[in-house]
Design a protein around this nucleic acid. Structure first.
Length: 277
DNA sequence: CGGGACGCCTGTGAGC
DNA sequence: TGCTCACAGGCGTCCC
């Protein structure tokens, strides 16, 4: 699934319902991206805290009686989704690779491609979690990320702006869909080296990223194939994508055909007429 | 070091 | 119908 809106929509759809639950058992399916890093039996009896999000990661705090708090860092990879169900859980299917049975219900990770991860860490800023989160940029709605700072960060990269957005080292959360959409909204050619973007255009891009992500959040994210929130609901943003997945269709602004090219091994969709270098 | 390619996996849809 | 191929929302790692 997995850009920031989908992860955040998922978080909101189960965080309140699982908070305070007592862990009863864990079930691991096929290996995910990394090993759990902890004996599952040792987590039985832990109390679930408030689920947080950092970038496209979720942090599920688990308080154990006999040791300082730790938790599970979850990532949904390309094809993962989480479901939280109270009551009688369905039997695990072939793509269900992590089950957290609790006193309030079952949190289940379904991930056909298994690029996702569930990793134990002693703290959000410790162990494996610290390593994985170390290089992340600002949260998109972090007010500390001013247009000036955004522009200054872009000035330090010569890579195409699309790749800079995807890398998440300046600003996290925009994956392939939203990076394409934000660049379209800002009228910026995805091939433009980041350091050639003027201050006013950087400000416009930052606003476009925020507006695109906010819009996707409001629409429950994008469901291209498998994304569902933890209630099993589809997202709707994909229905209003302006360029993503629309190769050869008319640009909604100028009617020129939307083009596709490959950058950093990923498809980029854009309008060569509206998006300027 | 910045920047780019690779690989992890499975599923789906297009084209033949 | 059945096969092969390209492609898919991410990201850590390795190489130059």
């Amino acid at each position: 699934m997995p850009e920031m809106p989908e992860v955040e929509v998922t978080r909101r759809s189960f965080a309140q319902r699982i908070a305070g639950a007592r862990v009863q058992s864990l079930r691991l399916g096929a290996p995910l991206r990394w090993p759990l890093g902890r004996e599952p039996a040792e987590l039985v009896g832990a109390t679930v805290g408030e689920t947080l999000r950092r970038g496209k990661y979720l942090w599920l705090p688990l308080a154990l009686p006999e040791e300082p708090a730790g938790g599970l860092l979850l990532h949904l990879g390309m094809s993962g989704s989480l479901a939280f169900t109270a009551g009688e859980p369905a039997a695990a299917g072939r793509h269900d690779h992590f089950d957290l049975h609790t006193s309030l219900g079952l949190l289940r990770l379904t991930d056909p491609r298994r690029f996702g991860a569930v990793v134990w860490a002693p703290a959000l800023d410790g162990g494996m979690a610290a390593r994985l989160l170390a290089g992340l940029g600002h949260e998109p709605f972090d007010e500390a990320l001013t247009p000036e700072r955004f522009h200054a960060a872009l000035q330090r990269r010569r890579t195409p702006i699309k790749a800079v957005l995807l890398a998440g080292e300046v600003i996290v959360g925009a994956g392939n869909i939203y990076a394409c959409e934000a660049l379209f909204e800002a009228g910026i050619d995805p091939r433009l080296p980041a350091d050639r973007i003027s201050r006013p255009r950087a400000a416009r891009l930052l606003a476009a990223v925020r507006q695109t992500l906010a819009s996707a959040l409001a629409l429950g994210g994008s469901t291209l194939r498998d994304f569902r929130d933890a209630h099993g609901m589809d997202g709707q943003f994909q229905l209003q994508a302006r360029v993503y997945g629309r190769e050869a269709q008319p640009c909604p602004r100028c009617a020129a055909p939307v083009r596709r090219l490959v950058q950093a091994q990923r498809s980029t969709f854009f309008c060569a007429a509206c998006q300027k270098r």
